[in-house]
Design a protein around this nucleic acid. Sequence first.
DNA 1: TAGTGTCT
DNA 2: AATC
Length: 213
Amino acid sequence: MLPDLFSFERRRVDLGPGAAILGGFALDQADALLEQIERLSLLAPFRHMQTPGGRRMSVAMLNAGSLGWVSDLSGYRYERTDPQTGWNWPPIPPVFLELASQAAQTLGFEAFVPDACLINRYAPGTRLSLHQDRDEQDHHAPIISVSLGLPATFLWGGLERRDRTTRYRLTHGDVAVWGGPSRLMFHGISELKDGVHPLTGALRYNLTFRKTR
DNA sequence: TAGTGTCT
DNA sequence: AATC
């Protein structure tokens, strides 16, 4: 039996029930994903949202889908239109939907059809503090998170804020999935370190797919 | 409601 | 790490 030089075992990190990091799961689609991010940013520009407490989020965001996650002084919620333009959020590109569905299926979540895709853009020095994704009505569907560009440290906590966190490195093409008993786990991203990625320069992008209802 | 941030 |  000759060794197969053209395939390799991809890293898979178990995060608990219904949750895992799928190493390099999006590598083949990464170019297409970045191309779509570029296109979407012309329709719904990246912006820094405000927290209900009046702080500016360091991470820049935009949405695709029939609903988009929005934060301002009034709170966190999903909106059909971009508050900045009054237009509908652009549709989720088919290449996004296909990837999200495949990643969900890998963890056993069948027929995952997200209605929201939040796109986060991290520059060096930016971060996303530990939080839960709990603004969705539907907590049965999983969360799918795709990493592109610069590597980051993923904080993976528990179901309560005080629970200890574990740190995992997320690199270009990794996909994290959490659903079922892990759906409301606290998570976050540590301050992004300086660096240069051949495809994104000094940036990291993250796609988060949610089924809000 | 709000802590997806900031301070100690 | 702990706090609000």
